[in-house]
């Protein structure tokens, strides 16, 4: 399996939000403004790649040799939570502007199921280290893409004056999300 096809498959064909339906909470929660969608997107790219790398090491260097594969869920969550804490501390010291820009989104990622989901998918597919990191990078770019598109659409929808009151806000966002998921189904044919 070459890395390029893993990358493109995880961005478009198996888009983490629109095909696998993981991480739907920030997809609806943080998509009302393009600025915050971008902040969340960058934070997810960063954390997901780091978390995939470290969970791969934890799984293959600790759990598999000792014969306790079934502990993966607990240990992955432990890794992700500790990692997010660490990243937050380091960012606060090293790059305060970025820390301010990411703001509340960084701690929110701790409970983002997409991050855990990608770690588990990597494990289930028996990916090597590079393949895992590539898959995570692609998936997080796919997350960024979906979130950014959604935020752009919602910012324009907010300007509508003819939309009936009962469709404003979340209802139209859900309809938009389902139409986007339908559109992304079109990518299934290219791989």
């Amino acid at each position: 399996m070459n890395l390029l096809s893993i990358l493109f498959a995880s961005i478009f064909v198996n888009n983490i939000i629109l095909s696998l339906f993981l991480g739907c909470c920030p997809f609806l929660g943080v998509s009302s403004r393009i600025m915050s969608a971008r902040g969340m997107g960058f934070a997810v790219v960063f954390v997901m790649v780091m978390a995939s790398a470290i969970t791969w090491v934890v799984y293959h260097a600790i759990l598999v040799p000792l014969g306790f594969r079934y502990l993966y869920t607990l240990s992955f969550i432990l890794v992700i939570a500790a990692l997010v804490q660490l990243v937050e501390m380091v960012l606060k010291k090293v790059n305060p502007p970025l820390y301010k820009a990411l703001g509340i989104f960084l701690p929110l990622i701790t409970t983002n199921c997409a991050v855990l989901g990608i770690a588990v998918i990597n494990m289930n597919r028996n990916y090597g280290f590079l393949e895992s990191v590539t898959n995570a990078f692609g998936a997080s770019l796919g997350f960024f893409l979906a979130l950014y598109l959604m935020a752009g659409i919602r910012e324009r929808l907010d300007l509508s004056e003819t939309m009936p009151a009962f469709m404003r806000g979340l209802p139209i966002a859900l309809v938009t999300a389902s139409l986007m998921a339908l559109a992304f189904m079109g990518f299934v044919g290219i791989m």
Partner: peptide, 9 residues
């Protein structure tokens, strides 16, 4: 052992 592993982690 599982407790020790998770506790150690």
């Amino acid at each position: 052992l599982p407790s020790a592993i998770l506790g150690g982690l």
